[in-house]
Design a binder for these strands. Structure first.
Length: 330
DNA sequence: GGGCGCGCTGG
DNA sequence: CCAGCGCGCCC
């Protein structure tokens, strides 16, 4: 069953509609959790989203794939200058409404359908709710809005979504262009940084020195392992970060993706943490259950330490204390 | 299209 | 309580 969402995004509506995505920070600037940002991770492919901006709903979208960690889009410009550099990126296939809808005109109909908390819209005042970004709504809200727009929900859902791999490729292509166009970096160095995107070259060599097997599955055959970034390659801001073996794990490829989505991660005591968003069936299918049982004590002094922070994980090494991030209990 | 006040959320 | 943040409104 799909879920239904409503996004308030006046500040970035042009970029997000034009680019076919939603982007949000992972937490508020003071580190506080935001349900509206967490919803970016809860959204599934096939979910339906209403786009609200400047008092109008002008687009409806279908979520194309799960969110991934990604840097703040460069073309946001001055909008959201205070947002963190890294956030959640959720690909959306948008459809414009030939008859845009002003929810204020439907306030009486919407009032009983909207949630009491985390509502994107105040039906009494007839205004969008400040603070709300991606908000969960009932199917009936979508049907009411689309009914007024003269558009069937089925027509919106019909159509091909791009695959997760295609979308992530396109996202990474952007980061790669930035590197290849940066002529302040020597050409050989640019090449190595680009190779690191695929877990190849000097990056792989650096990681393999310290990581001899996949820490989740225990697989040690190098042919089956990908050199994966802990801080994703597309989010790295320096060549050092892109090539640093400290910023890597040898993982089997589908585990690599789970890291990218923040669904599995290491705690600083070495335990593997599985996000509640990952279904238990997935955990079993991946063969993670035994790893979970035996996961305590994977790390010894001097090895990489992983910290849980609002269900997102950053890494640090004891030999790089300047990069230390304070542990915050969930 | 950018700045300011307002009201909801979370700490 | 206060801080943060995105809307409505204003220009």
């Amino acid at each position: 069953m799909p879920q239904y969402w409503w996004v308030n995004h006046k500040q970035t509506v042009r970029q997000e509609i034009g680019g076919g995505y939603l982007w949000s920070p992972k937490q508020e600037n003071n580190g506080a959790r935001s349900q509206f940002y967490e919803n970016m991770r809860i959204a599934n492919p096939g979910d339906v989203v209403l786009s609200f901006a400047n008092t109008w709903i002008r687009h409806v979208g279908v979520v194309e794939a799960h969110c991934v960690t990604a840097p703040k889009p460069g073309h946001f410009g001055a909008s959201g200058a205070y947002w963190a550099q890294d956030g959640w990126w959720l690909p959306i296939r948008w459809t414009p409404l030939s008859q845009p809808v002003r929810p204020r005109d439907l306030a009486d109909e919407l009032a009983p359908l909207l949630p009491r908390k985390h509502s994107p819209f105040n039906a009494i005042r007839g205004t969008g709710n400040q603070k709300a970004y991606l908000a969960r709504v009932e199917r009936a809200v979508i049907e009411t809005i689309l009914g007024r727009a003269g558009l069937a929900l089925e027509a919106v859902q019909a159509g091909e979504n791009r695959s997760f791999e295609q979308l992530v490729e396109a996202l990474d292509d952007e980061a790669e262009r930035a590197i290849t166009q940066d002529l302040t970096i020597a050409e050989t160095e640019r090449l190595e940084q680009v190779k690191a995107r695929r877990g190849q070259g000097r990056f792989r060599a650096n990681v393999s020195v310290m990581e001899k097997a996949c820490r989740i599955t225990g697989i040690s055959n190098p042919d089956l392992l990908t050199a994966s970034h802990i801080k994703p390659w597309r989010s790295c801001t320096t060549g050092t970060e892109r090539l640093d073996g400290n910023n890597g794990l040898m993982l089997v490829p589908h585990i690599d993706r789970l890291f990218d989505r923040g669904l599995i991660s290491f705690q600083d005591d070495g335990r593997i943490l599985v996000s509640p968003l990952l279904a238990f069936a997935d955990v079993q299918r991946l063969g993670l259950t035994s790893a979970l049982e035996e996961s305590v004590g994977l790390f010894t002094s001097g090895q990489a330490v992983y910290l849980k922070y609002h269900r997102e994980f950053v890494f640090l090494r004891e030999d790089r204390p300047e990069a230390r991030v304070r542990f915050k209990a969930p």
